[in-house]
């Protein structure tokens, strides 16, 4: 193709035609479909890398303060409901499974199945958020929200389930740090869930319109990666916040 023809074509269509093997979703600056797909996946992984470091700062803070204020962290985690945490972990893991199946449905170009799996994921995600909202409400009622209505009162005299949780006043005050981190971590996680649910709704509408079952699966795949990442964050939040201090 000499440069004159090229210029003429460029002026008319805005991009160079690639001929018959050019599916409509292939963007003009990629040579071929595999290159575009790999670029998309790799880009998504790099984004998840930034997410690791984003949550990394919180996990690092948790580690430090847990070592500093061990009794406060133990008492703080005693106030959470293990059943709620376990239920939420289960919901998220099942939703990860349904999302993985959704990606499979997109890869095998089954539109109905894809929609089904996406709806299932959506319901499970919303279920998670509901349980989380219930827990937050509980903490609000018990005056455990730092800055807004925090009171160390509940940690001074022991509780029904944990009569030994009698902290001296200065250590009871430090449960604020536990709850600060608890709310920062679960809040950031829930924010990611809300973003995920919103994106998934958009994807669902697009799939309904017939997209992503024609071989162009990168958006579904990348959303899957995001969703699994959010799941992984929770997989660590669950033991750190709920489980590891049950017996101390």
């Amino acid at each position: 193709m000499d440069s004159h023809t090229l210029a003429a074509q460029t002026a008319e269509t805005g991009h160079i035609e690639h001929g018959a093997d050019h599916p409509p979703f292939l963007r003009h600056h990629f040579e071929n479909v595999p290159q575009q797909r790999e670029a998309a996946t790799f880009g998504m992984w790099l984004f998840l890398l930034t997410e690791i470091m984003f949550f990394g700062g919180l996990f690092c803070s948790y580690l430090i303060f847990r070592n500093w204020y061990y009794p406060a962290f133990v008492a703080g985690s005693h106030t959470l409901h293990i059943w709620a945490g376990t239920l939420n972990t289960t919901l998220l893991i099942v939703s990860s499974f349904t999302m993985a199946m959704g990606v499979h449905a997109a890869e095998t170009r089954m539109r109905k199945a894809l929609m089904g799996w996406i709806i299932a994921t959506l319901i499970l995600g919303c279920g998670f958020l509901c349980v989380k909202a219930y827990e937050w409400h509980d903490e609000w009622v018990e005056h455990h929200v730092p800055g807004l209505n925090f009171s160390p009162e509940g940690f001074l005299h022991g509780t029904k389930d944990y009569p030994d949780d009698k902290l001296p006043l200065d250590m009871a005050e430090k449960t604020q740090v536990y709850f600060s981190l608890y709310f920062a971590m679960t809040g950031m996680h829930a924010l990611h869930m809300v973003i995920g649910v919103s994106l998934l709704t958009i994807l669902l509408i697009q799939v309904y319109g017939g997209k992503y079952v024609n071989g162009h699966v990168a958006p579904i795949e990348n959303f899957g990666l995001y969703w699994h990442f959010v799941d992984i964050v929770w997989i660590f939040l669950f033991p750190l916040l709920y489980l590891i201090s049950r017996h101390q």
Partner: peptide, 16 residues
């Protein structure tokens, strides 16, 4: 909001 990760009066650490 007034969370206490960096605030020393609440037990946080400004050095963090």
């Amino acid at each position: 909001i007034g969370i206490g990760v960096f605030d020393p009066t609440k037990g946080g650490d400004p050095l963090l």
